[in-house]
Design a protein around this nucleic acid. Sequence first.
DNA 1: GCTATATTTGGTCACTCGTCCAGGACGATT
DNA 2: AATCGTCCTGGACGAGTGACCAAATATAGC
Lengths: 195, 195
Amino acid sequence: MPVQTNAERGRAARAHLLAAARDLIGEIGWNAVSTRILAERAGVRSGLVHYHFESLQALLRQATLEAMGEMLDGTTALLTAAENPADGIDAMLAELDRYTGEDPASLLFIEAYLAATRDPLLHERMKALMLDFRGTLAAALGRAGHPAPADAAAFTMAVFDGHLLHKGLDPGLSASRIAPLLRQITSTATKGARE
Amino acid sequence: MPVQTNAERGRAARAHLLAAARDLIGEIGWNAVSTRILAERAGVRSGLVHYHFESLQALLRQATLEAMGEMLDGTTALLTAAENPADGIDAMLAELDRYTGEDPASLLFIEAYLAATRDPLLHERMKALMLDFRGTLAAALGRAGHPAPADAAAFTMAVFDGHLLHKGLDPGLSASRIAPLLRQITSTATKGARE
DNA sequence: GCTATATTTGGTCACTCGTCCAGGACGATT
DNA sequence: AATCGTCCTGGACGAGTGACCAAATATAGC
C-alpha cells in the first residue's frame, strides 16, 4: 500500500516544477531561471527537468501559459458576473489593485510579453489567449451599446497592462485613480439604450 | 598629426559600447547581453568594457537612461510645440505608431521597466525621468483646464506603454484606433474655458 | 516471487559568463 | 630621447549554464 503511486509522484514533481517556474520567472527574470535554481525551489533534482519537459524553455512556456489562462479565466468570470461591462471593468480594476507591479505575479506577465517576442510558439499561444479575452470584452461592450466595442476593448487592456508596468516604478499609483477615467471610455453609450 | 587623439579614441569606444547596448538589450534581452557579445557588436575587445565602465550592469543602466532621457526630451518637445495638450498627445501617438512593439527600441523600454524592479539605482533614475515627464504633461493638461490633470497624465502614460506592450503580440493594433478614445480623456474640459 | 515500466539520481559534457589584470601601445609632455 | 598617463589587448580565473545519460530505485502486472 504505497503512500504515492508511481504516476502520482510524477505528476507531483511536474506540478512542483511548474509552480516554481511561475514564481521564479517573476522573481529573478525569465532568462535567469536555470534548471538548477528551478529544481531546488521545486524540491526535486535538476535532472528531472529534462525528464518531464522537452527543454527548459518548454517548461517556462507552459508555466506561463497556464498562469495567464487561469488569470484570464478569473477575469472573464468577473466580467460576466457583472450587470454591465462598466461595472465588470470596475471589478477587474479592484482586482488589479491587489498587484503591486513588483510582485512575481505581475512581473511574470511582463516577462511573458517580452519572452513572446523571442519565442514564436509562446507568441502564438499568448496571442490566442489575449484575442480570446479581448473578444469577450468587446462582445460585452457591444451588447451594452458601445459604439466602438473592439477599439474600447483593446484600449482597456492596454490601460490595465500599462498601469501595472508603471506601478512597478511608482507604487503610489492606484487603480482607483484610473477607474473614473476608464469608465468614461467604457460606459460611453450606457446612458443610452440598454436592450 | 594623428587622425585621432588618445582621448578621442576613448570617447568613441565608450560611445560604441553604449550604442551597442541600446540595440542589444532590445534584441536579445537585458540578461542576455554579455560583455563579449556587446564588445563584438561595438567593434572593440571585451576587456574594454570594464575599463570604461564599473560593471556590465552599470553600462546597461547608463545606456538605458540615456535612451529614455532622449526619447522623453523629444516627446516633451512635441507636447510643448502643440497648441493644446490634446493635439500634443495626438502628435505623440503619431510618433508612437513608428514603433512596432517588436523593434529593439520598443523592447528596450519594456526591458528597462523589468530591470528597474531589480536594480535600485536604475529604479530611482527611471522614476525621476518618468515623474518629470508626467509632471510636464499634467501641467499642460492643467493649464488647458482639465479637472484632474495628474490622474489624466498618469492614465495617458499607462495607455502609451500598455499599447506598446500589446502591439508586440498583435501588430494589427494601431495608435489611430486608440487616439479618439484617449482624446476623450485628455480634452474633457477643452470645450469649456480656455483662460 | 519476478519481470516490465516509470521515475529519480548523480554526475559529465562542452560551453559561456563577469571580472580582473599584467603588459603592450601610443600620443603628450618635458 | 625619456617619461608619463591614458587606452587597449589577450588571456586567465572560478562559477554557472542546458542538455544528456547510465545506473539506481520504486511501483505495477504477472
